[in-house]
Amino acid sequence: MSIHELEKIFQDKIDKEIKIEPKDWMPEAYRKTNIRQISQHAHSEIVGMLPEGNWISRAPSLKRKAILIAKVQDEAGHGLYLYSAAETLGSSREQMIDDLHSGKAKYSSIFNYPTLTWADMGAVGWLVDGAAILNQVMLCRTSYGPYARAMVRICKEESFHQRQGFESLLVLSKGTKEQRDMCQDAINRWWWPSLMMFGPKDSESTNSDQSIKWKIKRKTNDELRQQFVDMIAEQVKLLGMTLPDPHLKWNESRKHYDFGEINWEEFWNVVKGNGPCNKQRLEARIKAHEEGAWVREAALAYSSKKQSRSNAKVA
């Protein structure tokens, strides 16, 4: 069969909502796009553990400590599910981790912002996880089977993350003046970076969109961003807090909220490595990996010793 015919069969499957599975024929670019996207998504989960992990030792109550630990641990699990999904496409976890550490692979820029106060734990849960969930719910229907299945599992587990974030801010919003200020300050700092999580504007794109055609992605950046703004603009009222955007206003004719312009210069700078924490986040990951090398080696060495001993017994 010619490549052209194979591509046609492939696209027909996608159009009929038939999932693509690991051993199916797929265009090389589809494979690469998926590896890149899934591994970036996995890296985001893993690097995302760091800003929240910061506050585990300082969580203000035993209940909050347990919740935060469970949440950060879930993120490790999510990274693991995603690495596994990417491995079905022929990329090893070692390779993906090397690419992260060398700077070749990217992760969501949001995690290059610092978590400065306890209220940031709430704001990250509510805004950052809230933005991520919109993307993830959409990805439950992505065309690559293992990715879609990983996302279904992740979405099930994620539902508590955003809720706990909002609830934690709700408590602050009803607390002392210092706590309310802390809450508003965290919202002010996390609002714009959360909007940036959806990526550049649709109008920046000149080409027909292959990811949409392949149903890897099913909604555009601007559609998801609008959905997010509409949702958060209502929820913030329940907190009695405000979003730091003077242009935020309900537009009756569009039936959506209008909102101000994102600082794209900041966005690209953080992507390029100039964010407040890019360096320390990567260094922390590299350090954990390098210091774990002897542990991983020892376990392998022991396993092979045990194997050869039991072989010797049999023989």
């Binding site: 553990m49 760091l50 699990g77 210091e291």
Partner: peptide
């Protein structure tokens, strides 16, 4: 809990954190 996000491999990061949660 200091290991959380800093373990030698993801699977064991999750494992030690389960123990942490039990202790807490």
């Amino acid at each position: 809990s200091e290991w959380c996000a800093h373990g030698p491999i993801l699977e064991q990061d999750i494992a030690i954190t389960n123990i942490t949660l039990d202790l807490i």
